[in-house]
Amino acid sequence: MKELEIGCGKPTGSQVGEAEKEEKPMEKSKNKKEKIMASVSVGTKAPDFEAPAYQDGSFGQIKLSDYLGKWVVICFYPGDFTFV
């Protein structure tokens, strides 16, 4: 796990390459809709992402594409301290 610098700011996860995406003003509303509709399906490439993480007493930065060559299970869940 790549070491994460601990500051007072709260970094969070995002899709890799998201910031580079260019948006033409004319197509903005269309793009916005697409963004909300954006979803993944089986048989397609898993969108790459990077996010801060906690593991074994330390904080680090995790990138999905670093796991190429291995099987990966991603588990989304509603929140810490929930009941199920």
């Binding site: 969070t12 996860g13 995002s14 899709q15 998201e18 963004k35 909300i36 954006a38 979803s39 993944v40 490439k45 898993a46 969108p47 790459d48 992402f49 996010a51 999905l64 594409s65 796991y67 190429l68 060559g69 291995k70 099987w71 990966v72 299970v73 991603i74 588990c75 989304f76 869940y77 509603p78 929140g79 199920v84």
Partner: peptide
């Protein structure tokens, strides 16, 4: 942000739904 891309983010609740993805070695 990640949950939205994966189609599991619930905007009304502000949380990610329970979603599990199996990804092979090719990604």
């Amino acid at each position: 942000k990640i949950g939205s891309v994966y189609g599991v983010y619930n905007e009304a609740g502000g949380v990610n739904t329970r979603g599990r993805f199996i990804i092979d070695p090719d990604g």
